[in-house]
Design a protein around this nucleic acid. Sequence first.
DNA 1: CGGCTCAATTGGACAGCTGC
DNA 2: GCAGCTGTCCAATTGAGCCG
Length: 235
Amino acid sequence: MDEVGRGSLSGPVSVGVSLVSASDELQIDGLIDSKALTEKKRTEMVPLINKWIPTAVGHTQPEEIDALGMTRSLRLAGQRALAQVVSPEIKPDLVLLDGKHDWLTASEPDLLISLDPAEELYQRLTQEAWGSSSSLVQPWEGLVVTIIKGDYKCASIAAASVVAKVERDALMNQLAQRFPAYGWHKNKGYGSASHRQALAEIGPSTQHRLSWNLGVSAEQVKTTYIERAVKNNER
DNA sequence: CGGCTCAATTGGACAGCTGC
DNA sequence: GCAGCTGTCCAATTGAGCCG
């Protein structure tokens, strides 16, 4: 698994998963971390990856990030990705995770504080993700192994990072058409100068992570929260 | 001129250390 | 024992410099 969109100011945080067996051999030349590839090369690589191994991408939306915090949001996106590839017939032995920190395994305090509203929301959304999958399996609680620089060292993590980045970029391009002022087709929601300037001028959209330091007034944040609430009510 | 690499910058989270 | 700081890790963009 690998994550993308963690440091972005808007849009989802996304987690890619690729499913390999120990006997699988790498069949794609030049498959390394998505950040080291150009957008064109990444896009070209996706069909090759999917021909080689099954993949999936899970997302956590901005308003969920505001409610859950980043670690739980990563965990939720990871569970949503896993729910798409795990079945009673295919249960992974372990998950290889890029980085030093294991965000996929719930920490002890999270499990102990069952009354924490964020943890309660996470549990509900995770159950929904697994309940809606065709498989009769439970949320992932298996062995997790973290690998620093895993996206450079491990082909399956690199594959997960490529499919996650291509899918999230496509999502941000769609959102850029709905919210053209922020230049998301170029900055993908990250805090570029033009993005920050637009935020200062017109305030945040419903796709921004309002719990983050966006450099806007409390009044603008409040207005956007109300917009979100109205939208959710209409839905 | 396009592609690549590197440093500096933004965001958050955690582990380990220090000081009260 | 706890709070705060620092370093390390992840995500990324931007601009400068280099190379073919």
